[in-house]
Computed example of a mutant assay.
Amino acid sequence: MAKEEKERYSSSSLMRGLEILRLFRPEQPTLSLVEIANQLGVSRTTPFRLLFTLQHMGYIRQNESTKRYELTPKVLELGFSYLNTLQITEVARPYLERLRNETGGSAHIGILDETSVVYVACETARGITRFAVAVGSRLPAHATAIGKTLLAFQPKEQWQELLLISDLHSYTKDTKTMIASLLKELEAVRAQGYSISSGEFEAGVRSVAAPIFHESGELVAAISVAAPESILPLDYVTSFVLPAILEAADELSAFYGYTPVKRRG
């Protein structure tokens, strides 16, 4: 469908309503009408009508004292409706539990949404709270092992575009932010079939990830283990954690009917 035709069928009101919902984040859990209008770059009358509709539908509520808006738990229905359509969330559960129990790290399944990793299944390591992500969390793809794995197995012709539209923020001194360096790493990840990241998103945290494929060879998701470097020293990662991750990824790929041409690693 041509761009002009897509724009003709697009609903501006629906787009604005979804934009409003996406404005609410951990760093700004409540917003006033003025703040919403300013962040959308529109006059107050535009979001006022949409806020009234969203409030009527139960997705947001307004504090009567402060007049500020906040999301309601009903918003979760939108995300869970999608998660319920993903077989991977239930199929992967025993594999994540096994990885968590055997490696001592937190185990995750993630998918790529534009330039972010969205976590769709998680098993948090017992006793570790330093690096724990919840279902629905979003992290930057360029700064995480699971994100680089997801990027590496996109069509190569899309790599440059994906990195160009990414906010290549430096989270630690080890975060790679140069496109040339990232492209080189994506080549390596694609060739070897896994990614290992150390301290790129959070100092002192190491993660290991591998791709999960569909029968057609297309990427379904990625599976990872993450923990403080003291829990995942490099020699332990290479000798035990990486083989365990690759085995789980291959078994989950087999569920989708995919047979690897050769053993990775």
Rank of each mutant, 00 (worst) to 15 (best):
I20H: 05
S195H: 03
L40G: 05
T144E: 10
E90P: 06
V118A: 06
V261C: 13
P73D: 09
R68E: 15
F24S: 10
P26M: 09
V225P: 05
Q28H: 15
N84L: 12
V120P: 13
P260M: 06
T259F: 00
S239N: 12
N63F: 08
G110A: 01
A180E: 15
E161N: 03
V208G: 01
Y236T: 12
P260T: 11
Q160Y: 11
L83E: 08
L151P: 02
G199M: 03
V241Q: 08
E114R: 14
I196D: 02
C122G: 00
L99A: 02
A210Y: 01
K184C: 07
T103N: 12
R190T: 08
S32E: 06
I128P: 02
K3W: 10
L163W: 14
E200P: 01
N101G: 14
I88S: 02
E157A: 02
H56N: 14
Y194R: 02
A222Y: 04
L40Q: 12
E97P: 04
Y194L: 09
Y236C: 06
A180R: 15
V237E: 05
E77M: 14
T53V: 15
R263A: 09
P94C: 09
P29L: 03
L232T: 08
H142Q: 01
L252I: 04
E102N: 08
V133Q: 05
I109E: 00
D113Q: 12
L162W: 05
R263F: 06
S207G: 03
L78I: 14
K156D: 08
I196F: 00
L96Y: 05
A92L: 03
S195F: 08
P47K: 05
E64M: 10
L51K: 13
I245E: 06
R98L: 08
D174L: 11
S106L: 08
G217P: 04
H142I: 05
K6Q: 12
E5R: 13
S197K: 01
V117Y: 00
Q87S: 15
L150T: 00
P211C: 00
A37V: 07
R49L: 13
V118W: 13
E97C: 04
V34S: 13
L14W: 07
S198R: 14
V133S: 03
E229W: 03
E200F: 06
Y69V: 13
A221T: 09
L21D: 08
I146W: 01
Q154M: 00
I20L: 06
P73G: 01
Q158T: 13
E77H: 10
S166P: 00
L76N: 14
S12C: 12
G217N: 03
T144K: 03
R8C: 04
A141R: 02
L162V: 10
Y236F: 15
Y119W: 09
A152F: 00
A222I: 09
E185T: 07
D174I: 07
G104S: 15
T103I: 11
K148T: 00
G136F: 05
L18S: 03
S224T: 09
P94H: 02
L31N: 02
V261R: 05
